[in-house]
């Protein structure tokens, strides 16, 4: 029976599942909206996987993304890795020569600088979401353009319209101003793409040595307007991998494969995890003035993990659960 490796990336906007075979080729991929319900969407994703692929033998599983811990506990992941590492691993697998990775997701964006196949520097956006997918989503909604058409519309632009990109709030008022002046929608839309790219390069690219080959991944890489804006701003070709939107999940699966190879055993609980009843129990710990907001993850009526505390009183119970 063929062996497969599962990668799950639970992000703020989307949850992605991929299945790689032993050679690391992608045999299955799914892109679901997280909708703020990570537990539900992971179960849903596993259920769909089973329906489409049948009872495949999964030899290892890895999770990543902001919901990696939760997903990791649910499925019994072999590795729970941060997004920087998984994105870098997946990009290197696609193109071992890659020197720069631009990644823009729903609520965060990162730049990863690689040299000789090793991460040498990275940056993530700090407190501001102006350089991320949500910014575009928000502005697209304002202009009543479906986000899927946003990029192609931007490419129709013929005249440059400069929109302030430092802050989403200013961008919005600037955009309204440009609309009132009578600028064409496509020019404004491309102006927004340029604003996002400027913001990204100013915040994250500051002081970084951006060298080709440059790979652009994450959900926003679907937007051809942004790709074009990056190409012009950086003056170099931008490579978008075939599976640009599930690269995190691919990286998690690749790392899981390595981990299982060295350990010889997987802790994956099986696809039937989708049949379990998962729940969360919020606990307001009154143990001290920190008043930590604890969350206990419950599977079929039994607590399997706890987190959210600062002192370890609750989270240290994880060991006892396992």
């Amino acid at each position: 029976m063929k062996k497969y490796y599962l990668g799950i990336d639970v992000g703020s906007v989307s949850t992605n599942l991929v299945l790689l075979d032993d050679q690391g080729s992608l045999v299955y991929r799914d892109y679901l909206k997280t909708m703020g319900q990570p537990i539900k969407v992971v179960q849903e994703g596993l259920k769909i996987l089973k329906e489409r692929m049948g009872d495949v033998s999964i030899a290892g599983a890895g999770t990543t993304g902001s919901g990696r811990k939760l997903a990791g506990i649910m499925v019994g992941a072999d590795v729970v890795k941060n997004e920087i590492t998984t994105h870098a691993v997946a990009a290197l697998d696609t193109n071992p020569a890659v020197n720069t990775i631009l990644e823009i997701g729903g609520q965060d964006s990162k730049i990863i600088i690689l040299r000789d196949g090793i991460v040498s520097d990275f940056a993530m956006n700090t407190v501001c979401a102006a350089g991320t997918g949500s910014f575009l989503d928000r502005q697209a909604a304002r202009l009543q353009i479906p986000i899927e058409e946003f990029g192609d519309l931007a490419l129709k632009s013929t005249t440059e319209v400069r929109v302030a990109g430092r802050c989403a709030v200013f961008a919005e008022s600037d955009m309204i101003h440009k609309q009132q002046l009578g600028h064409r929608v496509e020019d404004i839309v491309y102006g927004l793409c340029q604003a996002l790219v400027r913001n990204y390069l100013n915040n994250l690219g500051k002081g970084k040595d951006i060298k080709p080959p440059v790979m652009f991944q994450g959900g926003v890489a679907a937007n051809r307007g942004i790709r074009e804006a990056f190409r012009r701003e950086l003056g170099m070709e931008i490579e978008v991998p075939t599976h640009y939107d599930v690269m995190g999940a691919i990286g998690a699966a690749l790392i899981a494969r390595e981990a299982v190879k060295s350990r010889g055993i997987t802790s994956f609980k099986g696809l039937d995890v989708s049949q379990c009843r998962f729940g969360v129990r919020p606990i307001d710990c009154g143990g001290c003035a920190n008043m930590c907001e604890i969350v206990e993850i419950i599977r079929d009526g039994v607590g399997i993990a706890c987190w959210g505390d600062r002192c370890g009183k609750w989270s240290s119970r994880v060991g006892k659960y396992a």
């Binding site: 941060n82 997004e83 920087i84 590492t85 993530m124």
Partner: peptide
């Protein structure tokens, strides 16, 4: 946010050292 950055930073240091990201 802090944990992700710390984790990624440590991964990077160890990766540079061992040529392996695990």
């Amino acid at each position: 946010g802090v944990d992700t950055r710390l984790e990624a930073f440590i991964d990077m240091l160890e990766w540079r050292d061992t040529q392996k990201c695990l």
